[in-house]
Design a protein around this nucleic acid. Sequence first.
RNA 1: GCCCCCAUAGCUCAGCCGGUAGAGCAGCUGAUUUGUAAUCAGAAGGUCGGCGGUUCAAGUCCGUCUGGGGGCACCA
Length: 648
Amino acid sequence: MTSISLTFPDGQSRSYDAGVTAAQVAQSIAPSLAKAAVSATLDGRHWDLAWPIERDGALAIRTLKDPEGLELIRHDLAHVMARAVQALWPDVKVTIGPVTETGWFYDFDRSEPFTPEDLGAIEAEMRRIIGLRDPVRTEVWDRARAIAHYEGTGEPFKVELIGRIPEGEPIRMYWHGDWQDLCRGPHLQNTGQLPGDAFRLMGVSGAYWFGDVTRPQLQRITGVAFRNRDELKAHLTMLEEAAKRDHRKLGREMELFHMQEEAPGMVFWHPNGWTVYRALEDYMRRRQRAAGYREIRTPQVLDRILWEKSGHWEAYRENMFLVEVDEEGAKEKRINALKPMNCPCHVQVYNQGLKSYRDLPLRLAEFGSCHRYESSGSMHGLMRVRGFVQDDAHIFCTEDQIEAECASFLALLSSVYRDLGFERFDIKLSTRPEVRVGSDEVWDKAEAALAGAIAKAGYPYELAEGDGAFYGPKLDFKLTDAIGRDWQCGTFQADFNLPVRLDAEYVGEDGAKHRPVMLHRAILGSFERFLGILIENYAGRLPFWLAPRQVVVASIVSDADGYVREVTEALVAAGLRAEADTRNEKINYKVREHSVGKVPVILAIGQKEVEARTVSMRRLGEEGQKVVALGEAIALLASEARAPDQRG
RNA sequence: GCCCCCAUAGCUCAGCCGGUAGAGCAGCUGAUUUGUAAUCAGAAGGUCGGCGGUUCAAGUCCGUCUGGGGGCACCA
């Protein structure tokens, strides 16, 4: 028997016979450790307690306290759920059941749909199974036996899964009691290690087998799971908190916007919402002008001929809104499309007049209104709409200018994100795909330029090789909001294709004509979506400069109405968005209503304020108030109302 | 687009097994002149998302369409 040496996290090593299991090792260290153990890691790889260890390595025994322990809980619950489902409906076929960020899901094949009521029955059955404390057993099978087994039990999805396991990988079978499943493992020692009160089934949905629309749609049951009941409760509370800041709910409550049946995926901005929109747009306009962009405006309805030239007609026609017009005297109907993007229009502007290398880089920006026929199932409040406006710009430049343009874009983007309250963002660099246009030399240059600019700015980035567009490499920017969710907003894409298709050129120093590179870029993405993100990030409590109503001046007694109007007018004259509230209501009522309405500042005016020409200032989220002289209050609020780029 | 769920007053929701709609808040009217998160009272408000079917009778059952939600797919 060969001997192997295992090193533990404390740096100590011990010898064991080859083939020893992690469970045996744990037992040799301490019986209490063996009892608490749920799995191990061997050289960093998650390792089942029952798998034999054949060679030297670094071994760490894991308990439920480790991250690996939580993963096991979720993974074993997936199996327990599959077992429960097959116990309740023996004809159901099982497929795959991976761990997710907060729990797991398992996809089933069954002709009858699962109902929400079924979930309760499944949960109860799962608890029963956990109570059985069945030991988990594992065996390695050879491929032919495993396939024969699942052909015998009529589980075609499992047969296909086995086919997808690479040669050389062990094919493992697990048993929870007498219930068997194919799984790469690892697993807990027994189902009794699962917390019966720390999971919940969340819902049923459809999901295509391997995400492929042409394959059967399976029924996915998802669940969330944690180490204990308190963590589950905390998670459910977090979900409730997230629901409270849902921009669709806040949009209605704050009277920001609405949508309706006649225009699915299109936004009706109300006065409050449009105020926020305009504040954001004005800010972006100033930032871009300061960064050397020229703003333009191009048509929304264009003949299909342009879309055929640009290539969009062929590739994206199904997602375009078409506009037909009966033109007088015309034999055929002319077909136009609402623009789904601005780039072809920007090339048209570029193409007016011969451009010299001295004109480059030329940065054309447009808050361009675009329409895309998004599939019905993909729309979601402001986050995914059919009519939207991008903070779009295209930079026409030479290959040599890409890096400098990328660098100044990075500086602008990070500054804008910081101004808007997002400190953290991640960058992804996507490089050449297999099918592409442009020479390798140009790709080399462009990829190096993007990578170089990020590196010089000192940002880390994730590399997605082969994920670039066919027309060029790109950067994607993902920001993280106040409750830890990620949103992909900014983008920076090099394009070697469109200048060729739409025949953009410039005269170089050599007097010859050359192709410019076109850089597509956006910081917010779409205003609609970004406003949704802002609303949720701030839970409706927008920063003062963005708040739709910045100040409400509320009377305490009707004798103060005249002064209230005077104060309000003075605030409006100072550029503030202020309203008077002289309704015949108690101050308690007004304070509550405007607090619920997320107004950042309430100025209450009673007899004392009238006499002293002061205001009683109350800020949202703070208790108590401060009495300030009128002139001082106006100066203070006017200063606070300045956008981040306008502060001294 | 696909799977499941949902649609009742401006908003949030109740309406058991089919017997011809109910609450709170908002809005309206009146009283109250109020000191920092809901003053009191009164009247009013709905072809129960659209269309079709079953039935003596449909908010309730069935079909279909539209829109929405949770996912899957999609996202130039």
